[in-house]
């Protein structure tokens, strides 16, 4: 992030976001609350998100979601590992998450949000994508879509974040492994172990 005026459009998006005024911070147990609060407040600025694994010293990095009138526009992993939908995939399921909410004047974000062919395209997400992919909240997703400007409302049919998730074999296998362990633990708890396969 930089102080003062936005640098030239040739610099990467993550280096062009001006620092905003901190308007709130806290640890959220899910992504719905901070996204809904931003939408209700029509916040223009950005959320800085520090996932739970980073809070616990797991070395995860921070992510940023920029907002125009409360509606998500750009997303990136601050460490530079993932942009746009891939950054959402990396964030999904990482609660609890520390959230800082920053306000910026619309004109400070204009060079990132409004410019055409400014290199921000890979960072763009559909207005409802964070609510769908992070918060698992259809109602919030609908509200985000309706609050988006007309030209962005159609940009809601992409499945890029899910594609990025499915491309991460190690991540998917870890979800499966945890589910298998949970299934066995629950079977034990419920007295169903004699129904387990191979037992």
């Amino acid at each position: 992030m930089t102080e003062g005026h936005s640098p030239a459009a040739t610099e990467p998006v993550r280096e062009r976001l001006p620092r905003g005024d901190l308007v709130g911070a806290g640890v959220a147990t899910d992504f719905a609350a901070p996204l809904a609060a931003s939408l209700d407040d029509e916040l223009t600025g950005y959320l800085r998100l520090e996932p739970g694994d980073a809070l616990l010293g797991g070395g995860g990095s921070e992510a940023v979601i920029t907002l125009a009138d409360g509606v998500p526009v750009l997303t990136y992993d601050a460490g530079g590992d993932a942009d746009g939908p891939a950054a959402l995939a990396a964030l999904a399921g990482t609660t609890p998450v520390r959230v800082e909410r920053y306000r910026l004047p619309t004109e400070a974000l204009a060079p990132l949000h409004d410019a055409v062919a400014d290199g921000s395209d890979p960072f763009r997400v559909a207005p409802d994508a964070p609510a769908r992919e992070l918060a698992d909240d259809d109602e919030l997703a609908d509200r985000s879509r309706r609050a988006a400007p007309p030209e962005r409302r159609d940009a809601t049919g992409d499945h890029d974040a899910l594609a990025a998730f499915l491309a991460d074999e190690e991540r998917v296998e870890s979800v499966r492994r945890e589910a298998r362990a949970e299934a066995r633990a629950r079977a034990d708890e419920w007295g169903l172990t004699d129904q387990l396969d191979g037992d």
Binding site: L88, A92, A179
Partner: peptide, 15 residues
């Protein structure tokens, strides 16, 4: 077609 729903679908398969 969302990450949370697909994660739950994987869980159903493993159960």
């Amino acid at each position: 077609p969302t990450i949370p729903a697909l994660s739950d679908a994987l869980k159903v398969q493993e159960y």
